[in-house]
Amino acid sequence: MKRIYMIEDVCIGCHLCEVACITEHSQSKNPVKAFLHEENRPISRCTVEEWDGGVVSFSTTCRHCDEPDCLRACISGAIQKNDSGVVRIDTEQCVGCWSCVMACPYGAVQRNLKKKKANKCDLCPDRTSPACVDACPNRALVYKEGSQK
């Protein structure tokens, strides 16, 4: 399946992947509205990590594992892997127990504390390629066929 891969050497630490992720998962999908006017702004599914003032930076996100630890840990069945391999959280079903947060070795499940729902990359079902990848100005994120690791 197609997955998102990060290329650390060329990540510029701009955090636009996070901006795009939030925007894509907002009601309007418009950055200005999403950040300034909508209630319950989504939280980003990708996480930019930085070190040494940004000398090292990269964006991590869900690997859509072949055998997802989050799915195995989920007590409510909110996390399912669909036929194309995409691991998604049904936020209606999620009870916010954070078992997935405990289990994911990639640290790729976030806690939306406001909504008390777990949050993770859904590979942007409304797009042909994920928002973070499209927003990366330096191709530090690529979306291509590949294995989990």
């Binding site: 510029i12 630490g13 701009c14 955090h15 636009l16 996070e18 901006v19 950055p31 200005v32 999403a34 950040f35 300034l36 940004g54």
Partner: peptide
């Protein structure tokens, strides 16, 4: 009115 405080400008 359109600045979303994402701070990309600060970082870049």
């Amino acid at each position: 009115a359109t600045c979303i405080r994402c701070k990309v400008c600060v970082r870049q």
